[in-house]
Amino acid sequence: MAALELSNISKNFGAIQALQDVSMKIEPGEVVGLMGDNGAGKSTLVKIIAGNFRPSAGDITIDGSHVEFHKPIDAQRKGVEIVYQDLALCNNLTAASNVYLGRELTAQIGPVKVLDYRTMFKRAGELFAELKSETRPRDMVKRMSGGQRQAVAIARTLLTQPKIVLMDEPTAAISVRQVAEVLNLIKRLRDQGIAIILISHRMPDVFTVADKITVLRRGRLVADKPVSKSSPEEVTGLITGAIEAA
């Protein structure tokens, strides 16, 4: 059974048709590379899956059952996690607070729910160690390197046992060594049976880890095929429109 199935997803922002009739399927343990030019609709598509936007039309099915997300927490409850483009971090908060942003742990003390910093620091620290990152839970994100910030954004997706992880340009703005780390991480997640959508403008990244390549062009899905049956040249043609569809 597909981990995630999109059927005829469309989305318009006023007059802008960001997505039109997008359908695709991802199996557990599969990595899908999602490519496309700037403004093609990639972020919009993953934000719909993550519960940030509601589709104007179309259906989302997870593990065979139809779902409808009104807010991110709905998607998280169904095992969908996302690394946002630009990471969506608050510079003025600690690494741990960012990891738990929007789903902070609390302990009931008398009439009030008090933040459980001890557990949040501990769990965040474990996740950073798991990610082999030097990030420390109590450090302010403001003073972090690009790679550490990346680790914070990725650690967020591992808080629960996710079924689907969406990564919106996780390798933009980090060093070559860190890119390799992220790609390794993606492989490890895949080996745990997690389905992954990887958005990237970097052809080598996608060809290294993806099983399947999908291409969006002006809101339409113009390709959805195994990596082994494609090539960087073909994908480039599909992105620019030199090749109509494949």
Binding site: K47, G51, N52, K71, P72, I73, Q76, Y84, L87, A88, L89, C90, N91, N92, L93, L101, G102, R103, R156
Partner: peptide, 11 residues
Amino acid sequence: GNEEAATLTGV
């Protein structure tokens, strides 16, 4: 700190 991030993460 970052209203956009807060919105995205479901605050």
